[in-house]
Nucleic acid binder design. Structure first.
Lengths: 258, 258
DNA sequence: CGGTTGTTTGAACTGATTCAATCTGTGTGG
DNA sequence: CCACACAGATTGAATCAGTTCAAACAACCG
């Protein structure tokens, strides 16, 4: 099922706190990979715990888009850290459709749940992730309040995002939903290059799966946004001409992200 | 704003483990109130911690429905435990509408969030709640792993419910959404009396606020369900004639609640 | 080149919203 | 006991947003 996309390549170095020389930074080919250890240090962890945690996330895996990385209903006694790319949690409905219920950008994690999880996981774009045993993680967490605090912070943030998503799918119209998603994507991925160009990672079908629509309608929404002069498109690249108006249309208030 | 609906009436007794003689059980008039302390004991807590926690939740408040108990954007350095009734978290949208994003049944809690919360809180029906200081709670949690574990369990459960709600509003049609909500209500409230009668606590407007519809449409959905012979109604009382079919229509799989 | 994946468009259809009016039950005060 | 107010439920008609189905088109890749 998860076949041959696993590579043991993350020889975690329990070194001293030299910045730049991180566990994942060395053997990894991709340019924009987030270092797990650096992320922890940035969260205020001292090097000792950071190294112990980094040692838990020993398996490095490349996740290809468009096939299930974890099936809905499979056990989740593992923590997943996203180094690069973009992961989606999804739930299938009984008529073949599906709803994407959460996203994980680089630097974010999917924490283990007891028992089988009701959602599946797949990559939106090719992603590098670190996988660590839930049990080992629990072992460290039990003796380190900072780890628990970080986990709680992550949970509450994703709850807050979930509430915003509910508001979006339940109350906003098609255009607002897509506008909101674009704003959130820009904010969370930090992928607005210099001149306002957003490298949208989603296919229109995926935007539909996130916003609770059909791909046909998403397509029309995009072309409406373009007709209105809010965006210009070049394939998956989206040039946003008027961020303020896009935020207004999407009722986007980034406060919920923090 | 929160005016005169506060009553100091919860003299927490730090007694020994005598069942039945709980902190809230004495002065409270309402019959079906859930005891905070009993809930903790049922979760496997020993009496010492349970009593210390009960002491934190010293303020007992009666929340009247139909007015905001907590405004969106107000600080939330408090934990709220629902003893009886039903609380809703809601988010307003900019055009006067609102989306209910979560519910809290008796025995459940709303944990504190750092900084102002993006959602407001109001009661669906008259409710009794206990309010405790977040700071004191943190103090206890720091030295008791069981408290942290319970908080985490609560968070992950509500995340799971949130995902299901996203699927519901994003992918299910109007009838399925209402059917799903009815099934969830029955399951979570345990309010199915002997012969399948569900005492639905929601107005049709509130069902609309939860499921992302208008009250007009919710009304039609209810009468459709009745025409189909799935339910019979008597005011707010709903007699469900065919739970299996209702669950099927709502694609309701209760696994996500656990 | 052929296969695959994603985007675009049209036409018909359906489900849901909006606005407005009516009806019902409940409680309150005279 | 009635009159009144109020919240909630119900219904109709017009309109609109979004879906469905089907087909064509573009881009990419081995």
């Amino acid at each position: 099922m998860l076949a041959n996309n696993q590579t043991k390549g993350n020889t975690a170095s329990v070194a001293n706190c030299t910045p730049g020389q991180t566990a994942e930074g060395r053997g990894a080919p991709t340019a924009h990979s987030t270092s797990f250890r650096d992320t922890l240090i940035a969260e205020g962890f001292d090097c000792g715990i950071a190294d112990r945690l980094a040692a838990v996330f020993e398996r490095s895996i490349v996740v290809q888009p468009r096939r299930a990385f974890r099936e809905p209903g499979s056990p989740r006694d593992e923590a997943i850290f996203v180094r690069s790319g973009l992961l989606a949690k999804y739930k299938p409905d009984c008529s073949g459709g599906r709803q994407i219920v959460a996203l994980r950008y680089p630097g974010e994690a999917i924490l283990p749940s007891e028992g089988p999880a009701k959602y599946g996981i797949e990559a939106i774009v090719r992603s590098e992730v670190l996988v660590g045993s839930a049990e080992q993680l629990r072992g460290i967490a039990n003796s380190h309040a900072a780890v628990i605090h970080l986990a709680r912070k992550s949970l509450t943030r994703h709850i807050s995002i979930g509430y915003e998503w509910l508001l979006r799918t339940g109350r906003l119209d098609a255009i607002a939903r897509v506008a909101h998603l674009l704003c959130e994507t820009a904010e969370r991925s930090g992928s607005i290059c210099s001149r306002g160009i957003l490298l949208n990672p989603f296919t229109q079908q995926q935007v539909a799966d996130i916003t609770g629509q059909t791909s046909v309608n998403v397509n029309r929404v995009f072309s409406d946004l373009q007709k209105e002069g809010l965006i210009r498109r070049n394939g998956r690249e989206i040039h946003v001409d008027d961020w303020d108006e896009l935020r207004r249309r999407g009722q986007f208030e980034p406060a919920y992200l923090r």
